[in-house]
Design a protein around this nucleic acid. Structure first.
Length: 466
RNA sequence: GGACCCGUGGCGAAAUUGGUCAUCGCACCUCCCUGUCACGGAGGGGGCUGCCGGUUCGAGUCCGGUCGGGUCCGCCA
């Protein structure tokens, strides 16, 4: 017999159904026993009475919360005074005929029929597979999936194609600290995990993939925060021949408006089209480059999307005693004549913009420099010499020398977006298996030591005292 | 690299100024209950207060260290 999902029982009154799922709760009244059966679609009440076959009725008493069971029974409409308006299947119940235990379960390490906020994160992360049984987390993961599906659909309709770029790539100067991966075949050499598909996507543009996107995993070995993880997901896209940066902004705006309308209909956007504000104005008026522009900060359903534009191109990096890029070196400066760079680097703006949502930066985009000389100048300004460029970016300049159209793109951090859209304080609540503030995986217990054999094979120094 | 906060049975919390304070709720176990849906009722098991050391006649309660979590600054092209 084919399995019926809990939510489907409502339309099967009078029919015999086979249900499978988790025992959410048990209410035993001596003779009559109620079990709330949970599956991905919801909860259904099952009723067991002594009238059923003795073999099965005795088995019911063995059942404990979170056991996984299979129940054959008849869908009955409940008498009016016994209906439960709290749950979708509250108007019916299943009169059980038989029962089979598919899996037993130990007592859960913490309650899962709550929202979980009052349980220490340490415990929740250690038993993440149990924590994920929580309704709230399953809802978050579902919404996440629905959103990403919609984004793919929208971009497909607009002529973008999704392309996977390498995760194992090369260490480059500039940018975030990278995770490095030792090479076994070439001892003493290392891959770096991609901190962003930036270079690859620009090379795809040079190849004539005029509209690229990717739901991309990125890796950065920086100290995490509540809204950061060492690995995270971004909607990454790039296009050739954009009609100015406005085309990119409009595209991103269009995507988010559709996402909110379809996946988060309870939300309302403060202002459409998304207002724009220059970096200078944001800094002067709001003291930061990601102002929270909500009208009513107590309204949990308000979403204030704002574009912040005209970021400076360069900033002084005191730590390294040199100039660096505010965004990245590939950003197109608004001053395209390198001669004028001498006037004062701090005054040069870039064709760069961020998308800010309720005080969080959820996307950063720009037009890219496609003039090789200008690009080299930008690198030189930031303290890189010809030799280093030849070493680290040869592929990049070479590709451009074979022809590169004007292009631009944007990357949007999805974890942060989901946290805001789902009213979660931490992005850990919207990621299935997040890491701690120390970049550890408490469930898998990683990072972990590896054996001396492994170290040797990788050409790494063997620990003496192990 | 720096600053701050937290750590009590499985989970969440309580323990006046350090002195029977290891308590409560949930969960768990046993028994009773044919209509509950946070079911109800009776009884029961479980911690020595993250760890180490110090102060004190006496510490969960003070001090130091350590381990484990969290937040923030730096960092995050």
């Amino acid at each position: 017999m084919k399995r019926t999902l809990n939510i489907e029982t409502i339309s099967k009154i009078g029919e015999e159904v086979l249900l499978k799922g988790w025992v959410h709760s048990i209410r035993a009244h001596g003779k009559i026993i109620f079990i709330d059966l949970r599956d991905l679609t919801g909860i259904t009440q099952i009723v067991f009475t002594p009238k059923m076959e003795e073999e099965y009725y005795n088995l019911v008493k063995e059942i404990k919360p979170e056991y996984i069971v299979e129940i054959l029974g008849e869908v009955l409409e409940r008498p009016d005074n016994m209906k439960n308006s709290e749950i979708p299947t509250g108007s019916i119940e299943i009169k059980a005929k038989s029962l089979k235990i598919l899996s037993c379960a130990k007592t859960m390490p913490f309650p899962i029929d709550t929202n979980g906020y009052d349980i220490g994160e340490k415990t929740r992360l250690e038993y993440r597979y149990v924590d994920l049984r929580r309704e709230r987390l399953k809802r978050n993961l579902k919404k996440r999936f629905e959103t990403i599906s919609l984004m793919r659909q929208i971009l497909k309709e607009k002529g973008f194609i999704e392309i996977e770029t390498p995760i194992l790539t090369k260490s480059t100067p500039e940018g975030a600290r990278e995770f490095v991966v030792p090479s076994r075949n070439f001892k003493g050499n290392f891959y770096a995990l991609a901190q962003s598909p930036q270079q690859y996507k620009q090379l795809l543009i040079s190849a004539g993939i005029e509209k690229y996107f990717q739901i991309a995993r990125c890796f950065r070995d920086e100290d995490p925060r509540g809204d950061r993880q060492p690995e995270f997901t971004q909607l990454d896209l790039e296009m050739a021949f954009p009609e100015g940066k406005e085309e990119i902004m409009n595209l991103m705006e269009d995507i988010y408006i559709k996402v909110i309308k379809e996946i988060f209909p309870e939300k309302h956007i403060t202002q459409i089209p998304f207002p724009k504000m220059t970096y200078k104005e944001a800094m002067e008026k709001y003291g930061g480059d990601k102002p929270d522009m909500r009208k009513d900060k107590n309204d949990p359903n308000e979403l204030a999307f704002w574009f912040i534009t005209d970021f400076p191109m360069f900033e002084w990096k005191e730590e390294y005693k040199r100039w660096g890029a505010v965004h990245h070196p590939f950003t197109l400066p608004q001053e395209e004549n390198p001669e004028n760079f001498k006037e004062g680097l701090e005054n040069i703006l870039a064709h760069q913009f961020d998308l800010v949502l309720n005080g969080f930066e959820i996307a950063g985009g720009s037009l890219r420099t496609h003039d090789i000389e200008l690009l080299k100048t930008c690198f030189m300004v930031m303290g890189h010499d010809e030799k280093e460029l030849e070493e680290k970016f040869k592929h990049y300049f070479d590709a451009f020398s074979y022809g590169i159209p004007p292009h631009g793109g944007i990357a949007s951090g999805l974890d942060r977006f989901f946290a805001v859209a789902l009213n979660e304080e931490s992005i850990r609540e919207v990621i299935a298996f997040p890491k701690t503030g120390d970049s550890k995986d408490l469930m898998m217990k990683s990072p972990s030591k590896i054996t001396n054999e492994q170290l040797k094979e990788l050409g790494l120094k063997v620990e003496e005292n192990e």
